[in-house]
Design a binder for these strands. Structure first.
Lengths: 178, 178
DNA sequence: AAGAAAAGTCAACGCTTGTTGACTAAACAG
DNA sequence: CTGTTTAGTCAACAAGCGTTGACTTTTCTT
């Protein structure tokens, strides 16, 4: 890995962290580059623009690996694990928080939606076998993530406790079974 | 109603529409005042600041009138009606979309959360009788609203069709009954 | 009609933003 | 060692932002 590649990687890493947790337009290039310890001008050089830097963070968005998921029960478990691992606190990669934080920015909205559909929704559609139920499943995921991240509700428990995992499982299953 | 009051009302109306549909930081004062047909300086005069204008839109946020709701079945119906009436398209007042669009802006996040808790969550807690289930209920509302508004999923149907109302009812009930 | 109060206008401010181009420093090749 | 490519620095830019204060116009009161 050359020096420039390492700098790019640093930039992407910090950009991902900030963009995904606070949103595209609420984060300035200077904040990212200061955190990464590099000069602002390098964004232009390596990524062309702020939007280019954002696009470079999209491949880090976790995808649903459909080949490893046999049925809807596996699917539910995979999502529960995702929530338990990194969802809380905003530090881990999270598809739902990513959507929430960036969908409002007109410049990036389409990028975000396209990425989510390709990485999640098409697989959900296939696994669940019904577009409407698959959409409900996404909605439930989104809602659970957002209720905590944006709303800070008292009742939202820690996703890592087994009691809450059960509740999450139950709710997700219900979106599928109708 | 004096002339100034009418101007204020115009300002609040346009500010509500833009803030609630695109978010606080994605809307400039000049865009609001142009739409309202008044001068930018009047925001300072009448509301002190941009944040003051935003605060003035909060009372328009619909509240859950607990006195008119006897049980959870009424609650579900009230929410379904809210979705059916104005949720789609972003034109109607919608507490959930309001949260989504503004929660990311640090300046307004607390304002939004406080307003939602006072106008919705406390009543949900009381009606449902369990903070965790009440939080799930909010999460489901939020998710449904956002899946359409932010994600533009194909499977999300029109909330005004009776088939989808049934689906919405069913999902909301399940967050309550566990 | 005259003066006062209210309402609205205008130009400018200080600041931050993304972006650019000319320049310097480092790494590498011959 | 020399020259060239690569990597990084620096200052400045044009544009947009929220905000301000001095000014003009309108409206109401006496």
């Amino acid at each position: 890995m050359t020096k420039a590649e390492r700098t790019k990687a640093q930039l992407i890493e910090k950009a991902q962290f900030l963009f995904w947790s606070r949103g595209y337009s609420n984060v300035s290039l200077r904040e990212i580059t200061n955190l990464a310890g590099v000069d602002v001008a390098l964004v232009s050089r390596y990524f062309g623009s702020k939007l280019g830097l954002f696009e470079a963070t999209i491949p880090l968005l976790p995808a649903l690996d459909a080949s490893q998921i046999a049925d809807v029960e596996d699917l539910v478990e995979r999502v529960v694990d995702l929530f338990a691992s990194g969802e809380r606190g905003g530090d881990g990669p999270s598809p739902t928080a990513f959507i929430l934080m960036n969908a409002n920015d007109p410049e990036v909205g389409d990028l975000v939606r396209t990425a989510y559909k390709a990485r999640w929704q098409v697989h959900l559609d296939a696994l669940i076998g019904d577009k409407r139920r698959a959409a409900d499943f996404s909605a439930a995921m989104l809602g659970m993530s957002i209720a905590e991240k944006a709303l800070h509700l008292d009742g939202i428990a820690d996703y890592r406790t087994s009691a809450y995992k059960d509740q999450l499982r139950s709710l997700l299953r219900k979106t599928i079974s109708g």
